[in-house]
Design a protein around this nucleic acid. Sequence first.
DNA 1: AGTCTCTAATGGAAGAAGGA
DNA 2: TCCTTCTTCCATTAGAGACT
Length: 289
Amino acid sequence: MLTSTFRHVKGVGPSRERQLWLAGIRTWDDLLASAASGDPGFLPGIRGLSRKLQQRLAEEIAADRQALRRGDLEFLSTRLARREHWRFYSHFKERAVFLDIETTGTDPGSSRVTVVGVHHPDQDPMVFIDGYNLDDFPGYLEGDRLLVTFNGSSFDLPMLTRHFGALRLPKALIDLRWVAFRAGFKGSLKQIERRVGISRNHDVQGMDGSDAVMLWRNWVVNNDERALELLVGYNISDTMNLRPLLHILLDRIHQREFPWLEHRPFSEDDLVKEAFWVDPRELINRARR
DNA sequence: AGTCTCTAATGGAAGAAGGA
DNA sequence: TCCTTCTTCCATTAGAGACT
């Protein structure tokens, strides 16, 4: 899906991209193979594609192709608009970090970050808890990561930036709210989870963000350990459900927009819908160490 | 309840192709 | 070379809605 897009090149919009596809130029490699002929007008018959633009198209796509080969996600992030960053996922799965935060409210002026949940598919999920290890969180994001959130561009990331001051966030960001929108789903994370059939552990079923605020208060004021456990369980459910949701959404977009790409991007294993669950007590113990 | 980013719609300017 | 048409870009505006 990443190597099938050309719209990030200035001068190529929806119409010219479609014409490229129809002319058999469906991937970056197709384009580079045509350009390799050396003919400056290697793409005849496409309206609005001057020789000058063809030349630039070949140059820019060649640079993108090289960046992809050497795994330069940061470079590619600057090339594609943020709403297109979901295209990175199938190439950079192993660098994906799923993230969700809890706070004391939604007003960034007065709210504080209380819990940050992260899930890197190759590692155990982790939580960073205010009062224990929250200050260690920025270190977790080191490296050229692909960050995945739900509504993170409006909420989680501005909140984290405010909390940590100079936080170096990954340039590559997938916001599932807008991926869902593209896949035909509007609504909150929980609503969309329900509609696509992703389940939740019964302990945290029916909870929402305002519960998270109350649980944190209960923990801080009354030292209620069970409240903290529930809060962490809720947070990690949100965090870990992002991965199957992303897979389902991308599969849907794939079917909608790229039916001519023969292979589907995800196997049946990637599309499982049952709830992931980690014992929150384990996560809390790790945060306390 | 505030913040943020997105979509969608709009209009003017510019680049390019193609016909006359 | 001129004119028309198509496509894209860019800036602006408005409005929606999801996060805790």
